[in-house]
Write a protein that binds this DNA or RNA. Structure first.
Lengths: 340, 340
DNA sequence: AAAGATGATGGTATCGTTGTCATCCGGAGC
DNA sequence: GCTCCGGATGACAACGATACCATCATCTTT
């Protein structure tokens, strides 16, 4: 039946409300209501329309619906790159939460270069999403202006800027640096060093760490900067270089768990005990971090909560509810394990 | 200027072609052409229109354009979950390649449960994407029917089914199982075991491995099935259980590198030499695999190529070009390292 | 029993863009 | 000087769904 109907319409065109309406002997608007407000219809009509929908294989054209109703049911998310495992949890939670409420996700990668950011932004704004989730993007002034001008709700995540474009869900990177430094100090370490990816947030954590170290009288903290995305290999190389520069170091803080795993590996290869010789701490609390030997002390951030909350905020906005706390600090926690 | 224009229109509505047209003293269609076919306009007009676009902050409504022209410039991708690192490379390559050509990606997670798959499919088809990339989804017969009926180009990836819905870019999972078994056999192993996630493709690799083992006279291959997504912890537990079941095993094949890392970790904890005592092989060639000690022998699949090719295929279709090889086997390679 | 309220359904206009065809203009060719 | 041509531009309609208001039947109220 479905086949026959489609064949009649020709290969190109899908069924429309009109086709369904004709078949169910109702008007187009009634078909629309069968899907969007079924309790406005009498049970008999509803059933007839549903039958017609099923037998035509009708799938509503959301471009048309979105255009007319100015409700696209689309949320856009921008990440620097999806390759790093950091934002995955957030993207997953975001997709899940959106899906539950009948919204979809459009994903963009800003790819670390600003040149394409503008084109990406136009492509996003052009689809009139109900909201945009920015994840760790260091947006240009021009980008901020366009976003603000578009009037589309924006949630900035994984960071807390003092003046967000609109809403923000994140935590203090400087705070993490400080907390980690204090933690290592408390555990008796006095000569720490850092290996850090050179993205903006990692830099902020590094600065926080250094400030705390100075306050605690631990002097200058050597830092190895490695290119993002960070890898196990750069962690290994980083420790090797640090040991040359400062053979007496007793703790290494890493801007990612992958770097930390590299440090563990290199230490193992050199016969350096962890945490006996040096303490090692990471960031991210990835899947492997609890399982490696020694288990990795790291900083945990609730990426799932960030994603879910971002979805909630945007949907609340889309449906006209007010946001109680447009700037939300989700905090972080140091996960104490064997390595530090 | 931009502000003033927007204010005049009221906070809600963005600028439209009409606003730009009025300002540039041309008709609406000329504005459209300035963006889509600039060489049809005289240089003077083009410049005037561009100026008007800039000063109104006009961003074309792609819902309207897509509706009228039946070209959404949108590609949908479905993955079981984005949390597993397996498909990331593909998604990234896909996004990058699409972006270059001015297309965007809509991402859906089928989340391993079929119930939601239908709703997701409707949401996707409803946006009339120019193509759909299916990644490791075991689609129901109903889903296949709907996809075929929609007439939207579909690329199935990370697998090669005998009769794809439309196009397919992947490799033989059974072939990988066989190849890995032969590899281990060549290297002198005779009592292998497997730890495998229980998703369909891993099962296929397992079957291939077992078939080859039988052919090579290695008898039955014990298998530990672990829930997807696989983790380091389940790899550790898997080895522990395998050793109980078969204390004399001399090789372990894992359905992911994360599992393999767990096996390495557990072996290390128990003082079992790798590869001296047992050989360990993974699948996926993740970022850490080359760096761990011992470096991990694994199977590499070119996920980037899959993603890029999928984008090319769909864009070619969208722009009316024929696909020379609608079923493409990208193969795989065994990456020989220290662990096996 | 008449008037009003309620529920179900339909007609028409509209969202913003672009496909199609028409129009206009200046210049080349005779 | 006239036709013809092609490049530049415009008028109109249409894509498919839904907002808005109208209509009609049925039921309640006094």
């Amino acid at each position: 039946m479905a086949i026959r109907t489609r064949a009649r319409r020709g290969a190109g065109g899908a069924a429309t409300v009109k086709d369904v309406a004709r078949l169910a002997k109702v008007s187009a608007i009634t078909v629309s209501r069968a899907l969007n407000a079924p309790d406005q219809l009498s049970p008999a009509t509803l059933e007839r329309v549903k039958g017609a929908i099923a037998s035509t294989g009708y799938v509503p054209n959301l471009l048309a619906g979105g255009l007319r109703s100015a409700k696209s049911r689309l949320v856009a998310a921008v990440v620097p790159t999806i390759a790093g495992p950091v934002f995955l949890e957030t993207i997953q939670a975001l997709t899940d939460a959106l899906d539950e409420k009948g919204y979809q996700l459009m994903l963009g990668q800003s790819g670390y270069k600003t040149s394409r950011e503008d084109a990406l932004l136009d492509a996003i704004i052009g689809r009139r999403p109900v909201g945009i989730v920015l994840t760790g993007m260091s947006h240009s002034a021009e980008a901020r202006r366009r976003l603000a001008a578009s009037g589309i709700p924006v949630v900035e995540t994984w960071d807390l800027s003092p003046d967000p474009i609109d809403m923000a869900i994140g935590f203090s990177h400087a705070g993490i640096g400080e907390a980690l430094c204090c933690y290592l100090h408390e555990r008796g370490r006095r000569r720490p060093a850092l290996i850090s990816g050179d993205d903006e947030r990692a830099r902020r954590r590094t600065t926080g760490f250094q400030a705390a170290a100075k306050r605690l009288g631990m002097g200058d903290v050597p830092v190895i900067w490695v290119a993002a995305p960070t890898t196990l290999a750069s962690g290994r190389a980083g420790l090797a270089e640090l040991l040359q520069r400062r053979p007496d170091l007793d703790a290494v803080g890493c801007s990612s768990d992958l770097l930390a795993l590299g440090v563990l590996t290199e230490a193992h290869a050199r016969g350096i005990a962890v945490p006996g010789g040096i303490a090692v701490a990471g960031f991210g609390n990835l899947a492997f971090s609890a399982g490696v030997i020694p288990s990795l002390t790291t900083v945990h951030v609730d990426g799932t909560r960030i994603g879910r909350t971002a979805a909630d905020y945007l949907i609340d906005r889309a449906e006209g509810r007010a946001i109680a706390q447009p700037i939300l600090d989700v905090g972080f926690s140091i996960v104490r394990r064997d390595s530090a």
